[in-house]
């Protein structure tokens, strides 16, 4: 029997690897991938809690379904933004996009 804490720990590690990716990578597409990793970490935690709590109706897993929806929407819109950005100036380097500099 694998304890709940082990799953949560894996989820946390996955999440923070994603965070680190968002912070350190320059390529916008890779940043999107890392965001997806973070979302997956959340999913893992949700399912783990949901299954281990032993409830009849899978309330935690329902949220995983919603996370799927949000992730799909997010990646679609995110890629659209990256594409239109790329069309204006041929780069996906987020460091070079700083028109909002104060």
């Amino acid at each position: 029997m694998i304890p709940l804490g082990a799953f949560i720990a894996v989820s946390a590690v996955l999440f923070f690897i994603g965070v680190a990716g968002v912070l350190v990578r320059r390529n916008a597409v890779v940043i999107l991938m890392c965001v997806e990793l973070m979302l997956n970490a959340t999913n893992l935690a949700l399912v783990a809690f949901s299954r281990k709590a032993g409830m009849i109706d899978e309330r935690g897993s329902v949220f995983v379904v919603f996370v799927f929806v949000v992730a799909a929407a997010e990646v679609a819109v995110g890629l659209a933004i990256v594409l239109s950005l790329y069309r204006n100036r041929p780069t996906v380097d987020v460091d070079e996009v700083h028109a909002m500099k104060g």
Partner: peptide, 18 residues
């Protein structure tokens, strides 16, 4: 990350069967 990962092990199992 390290803190949260270690903290995660403190979640106790409810002790119910799947």
């Amino acid at each position: 990350g390290i803190f949260v990962a270690f903290f995660a092990f403190s979640f106790a199992d409810p002790g119910k069967a799947l």
